[in-house]
Simulated scan of single mutants.
Amino acid sequence: MISPSYCQTMARYNARMNDQLYNACATIPDQQRRTDMKLFFKSIHGTLDHLMYGDIAWLSRFMGKEDEVPEFGGILYPDFSELADTRKVWDQKIIDWADRLKQSWLESDFSYISKIDGTARTKPAWLLAAHMFNHSTHHRGQLTTALSQLGIDFGVTDLPFVL
């Protein structure tokens, strides 16, 4: 079981890592950010966009706004500047959500409908919150590998040394 303080820590770590990652990605020409690097979502831009989708989807559900979850597939933000600006907005929304989070919510079950396969699911809320943060860390790891292959230093990413 996780706690509100865990979510608050991860929300701040998430925002810090996203800021660091976007700063590194901003040094890459747009065409290179869109080049297929054999990542799961092909390009750096595609992976950044997928991360944005995941956070919008989960946080919208958690805030009771399931109707605001975008359809899955395709690029939500084709323009890097718009994607970067949206990222900052949603990182703050995640921090605000975590700061208001109650242990009782984490201990409850949470139901949602997947936009990927249309299936209704019920899972422990704490598990889904942990997944939201883990999902971001997972894909940021793919991006840091791609950046490393391009010779770009993205900085320290280890949680104990970042916050």
Rank of each mutant, 00 (worst) to 15 (best):
K102V: 06
Q103M: 10
D49V: 11
A11G: 04
F41T: 10
H45F: 11
N23V: 04
D158V: 01
D109K: 10
S111D: 09
E82S: 13
Q92H: 04
T145H: 04
P124S: 00
Q103Y: 00
W97Q: 13
C7M: 09
Y22I: 05
I95Y: 02
H138P: 03
R16T: 08
Q92F: 06
K93S: 14
T144H: 03
H45Y: 13
I28M: 01
N23L: 01
A146E: 08
R16Y: 04
M1T: 05
I113R: 12
N134W: 04
S43P: 14
D30V: 10
K38H: 14
T144V: 03
I2M: 08
H45A: 11
F72T: 11
G141H: 03
W97R: 14
W126I: 08
P29L: 09
Y6K: 02
L106R: 04
W126E: 09
Q8T: 07
E68Y: 11
Q103W: 08
A120P: 05
L76M: 14
Q20D: 12
K123F: 07
G151A: 02
K115N: 14
I75Q: 12
Q32P: 08
R100N: 15
T35F: 10
G155V: 10
Y77G: 06
I2F: 00
L147A: 02
L163C: 05
L76I: 10
E66V: 08
F72D: 14
A24N: 05
F154H: 00
Y13M: 00
D36E: 15
T144W: 00
I94Q: 02
T27V: 00
R87E: 03
Y53I: 07
M132D: 10
K93G: 11
R140C: 02
I75L: 13
G74W: 06
L150R: 03
T157H: 01
D158C: 03
W97D: 14
V89G: 03
P124K: 04
Q149Y: 05
A129S: 12
K102W: 12
K42N: 15
Y6G: 02
R87W: 11
C25N: 00
T86H: 10
D49S: 14
K93R: 15
I2E: 01
Y77S: 07
G54H: 07
E107S: 07
F161A: 02
C25H: 01
G64T: 14
K115I: 08
P29I: 13
P29G: 12
H45K: 10
Q103T: 05
S3I: 01
I75F: 08
K93C: 13
L39K: 08
A57H: 08
I152P: 06
S43C: 15
D79E: 14
M17E: 03
D67S: 13
K88L: 09
T119L: 07
I2W: 02
A130D: 06
Y6H: 03
C7V: 07
Q20Y: 00
L106E: 02
D91Q: 05
N18S: 05
I75H: 10
G155F: 05
Q20R: 06
I94K: 03
G151T: 03
S3R: 06
L101N: 04
S136G: 07
R16W: 08
